[in-house]
Design a protein around this nucleic acid. Structure first.
Length: 612
DNA sequence: GCGGATCAC
DNA sequence: TATGGTGATCCGC
């Protein structure tokens, strides 16, 4: 449909910036979710300026600049290579490409009805259910960066993935809520319960997205796919009070794209006909395709591929320029092909388990060891929860410059205990410290891969992974719809118990950490301290509107928030947004307050529950 | 197999 | 002042 204002490469350069190609950099700074819905009426150029000015001079900005320069260089190489190739005889490459296209075409599947369902501004929508006042003001969920924002906030150019201080510059009256993942998980469960009625083997793509194959449902109920989806969306809205958007198509790839076209609270169907599909793809920006991000978009654009239809005339070059996999992927995009097999996530095999955290710049070796020990303990918990050991252990660090480095090792045995994770990771950290003088980190993480299951049941005689897979949600109903071959088995309860226990441990671990940072963990097996006293902390929550800490009492807190909201001039919000983003005063509001250091967060640690 | 990069959410 | 965490995949060496 629209998709007009999405390529700011045509920015006329403002006078204030020096003469270099800042167009691409600004585009980069706009963030990854530019193509998302809700941005159509926004003046991207003004937004871009504000973001640019908010970021300028920071280490983050310098890093983005570096990346942008490198990409520009890479693109120059691509263009040189393209020019070289075009002087050669490409007929055999062309033939090869056409053969592959023909082969793909012969496998085209049009008999299935696949849908992609996507909750609209999910986290924000869930928060609005609890606090309807937030429906009428621009609001976002997130801490350092936003995970979601409502549609009112999007009118200001606010987007998910954006640093919250940048968002505040774009929209000073933005209400910022801390995320509450347990709440979203619970709501997601309600939504999934309904989706299961339409396809018991639906596939959760994330907490707020799913793929369903509704072919059987359509047949059994003598309904057209769009009728089924209307019905399902209405049912979801009715019973869970969150709205969803959906795409209906012959395969998952097109359904995913289509679900974005009538957001929010809408649906879009691409008919199961070859011609309709080809036409749909022909005019579709490649960026809309799942898997083509900002970098690949720029690379493709440089050789003249903006829309999926542009892929065809370049087919002979793609393998040489971008590799075989990329060619195959693009060929499928051109033809509008994608998978039709939809299956529960539980049937996917996990490849890695990891944890990482960002912190203030740290150069002190003791402090870094404490962070490593913390990461090791976190990873141990995740390894226990997922029932794995790892034969490979990787250390990830992000320098204060935002440069990311990873180092990995194959321990002598599969590891999962914190003390082993720590002691095998420490030498890698030490080597980095040695190789990079004056190293300062802003992130540290650990990852286990090459996984070995530790589940009692699934390990057969030869050690081959034959894991029992949970099939359905742990609903109160005993196996709602028979799913024939999939076993309904699982340790969901065990997992939940583990999560609860894990939460209780957090306080303990903070105490461990404190001790460690004083005592200095040894290079060998650090010990966890036993039964530390519970630290009494003052219970305070930050007001999402004025950001001041408030006594953590539900009623008093809510009253305070309402009061703050009422002080916000609502008319600020109901403006025509297309030009108003310019009139954001540089330093509009009161605020400016005491640092909140030491004040505990409102929510427990973020935790992504994967198979749930 | 390792390390860097990209991508999605 | 200040820019996330988890998991997957691909490429070049």
């Amino acid at each position: 449909m629209e998709s007009s204002g999405e390529n700011p490469a045509s920015d006329p350069k403002p006078e204030s910036v020096p003469d270099e190609d800042f167009g691409t950099l600004k585009y980069q700074l706009l963030g990854p979710s530019l193509t998302k819905a809700g941005q159509d009426s926004v003046d991207q150029q003004k937004v871009s300026e504000i973001i640019y000015n908010a970021s300028r001079g920071s280490k983050f900005f310098k890093h983005e600049q570096d990346r942008d320069r490198n990409l520009t260089l890479k693109i120059e190489r691509i263009l040189k290579e393209k020019a070289r190739l075009e002087r050669l005889d490409l007929s055999s490459e062309l033939r090869r490409a056409d053969e592959y296209l023909a082969e793909l075409e012969s496998s085209r599947e049009l008999s299935q009805h696949v849908i992609h369902v996507d909750c609209d501004a999910f986290f924000a929508a869930v928060e609005e259910l609890d606090r309807p006042e937030f429906k009428t003001v621009p609001m976002a969920v997130g801490k350092g960066v936003l995970t979601t924002c409502n549609y009112l906030a999007r009118k200001f150019g606010v987007r998910s993935g954006m640093a919250s201080f940048v968002a505040k510059k774009l929209c000073p009256q933005l209400v910022l809520l801390p995320p509450n993942y347990d709440k979203y998980t619970a709501k997601a469960k309600e939504v999934r319960a309904i989706m299961a009625e339409y396809d018991p083997l639906f596939e959760s793509a994330s907490i707020d997205e799913a793929y369903l194959n509704i072919t059987a449902y359509c047949d059994e109920n003598h309904l057209e796919p769009d009728e089924v989806v209307q019905r399902m969306r209405a049912e979801i809205l009715e019973t869970t009070k969150v709205s969803v958007s959906a795409g209906i198509a012959a395969n998952a790839k097109i359904a995913k794209i289509a679900s974005n076209l009538n957001k929010p609270n809408g649906q879009f169907q691409v008919p199961n006909e070859r011609e309709a599909i080809m036409k749909f793809m022909r005019d579709l920006s490649v960026r809309k395709v799942n898997g083509i991000g900002r970098v690949f978009e720029r690379e493709l654009e440089s050789i003249g591929v903006k829309k999926c239809g542009d892929i065809y005339p370049h087919r002979a070059l793609l393998t040489k320029l971008f590799g075989e996999k990329a060619f195959q992927f693009l060929a499928q995009c051109y033809l509008g092909l994608g998978r039709t097999k939809i299956e529960p996530v539980e049937t996917h095999e996990r490849k890695s388990v990891s944890t990482e955290t960002t912190f203030h710049e740290i150069g002190d070796k003791e402090e870094l060891r404490a962070k490593l020990w913390w990461a090791a303990q976190e990873l141990e918990k995740d390894m226990a929860r997922t029932h794995f050991k790892g034969r490979t252990l990787a250390l990830k660090v992000k320098l204060h410059t935002f440069e990311v480095l990873t180092r990995q090792t194959a321990p002598s045995r599969a590891v999962f205990l914190a003390k082993d994770l720590y002691s095998f990771a420490l030498p890698m950290l030490a080597k980095l410290e040695k190789d990079i003088p004056n190293i300062k980190l802003r992130l540290l993480g650990l990852r286990c891969s090459n996984l070995v299951s530790t589940q009692k049941v699934g390990i057969n005689f030869f050690g081959v992974a034959t894991q029992p897979k949970p099939a359905t949600e742990p609903t109160s109903e005993p196996a709602p719809i028979s799913t024939s071959d999939v076993n309904v088995y699982h340790e969901i309860c065990a997992e939940e118990a583990f999560e609860a226990a894990a939460r209780q441990e957090i306080q303990d671990e903070m105490n461990d950490l404190e001790q460690l940072s004083q005592e200095t963990p040894d290079v060998h097996e650090p010990e966890a301290s036993a039964a530390p006293p519970v630290v009494e902390t003052p219970a305070m929550w930050d007001c999402p509107v004025c950001t001041r800490p408030q006594i953590a009492d539900d009623r008093a807190f809510n009253e305070h928030v309402d009061f703050c909201l009422s002080r916000q001039t609502i008319r600020e919000v109901v403006q025509d947004t297309s030009e108003e983003t310019s009139s954001i005063p540089p330093n509009s509001r009161k605020r400016k307050l005491p640092s909140q250091a030491g004040i505990p967060e409102m929510d427990p640690k973020q935790k992504r529950l994967f198979f749930q």
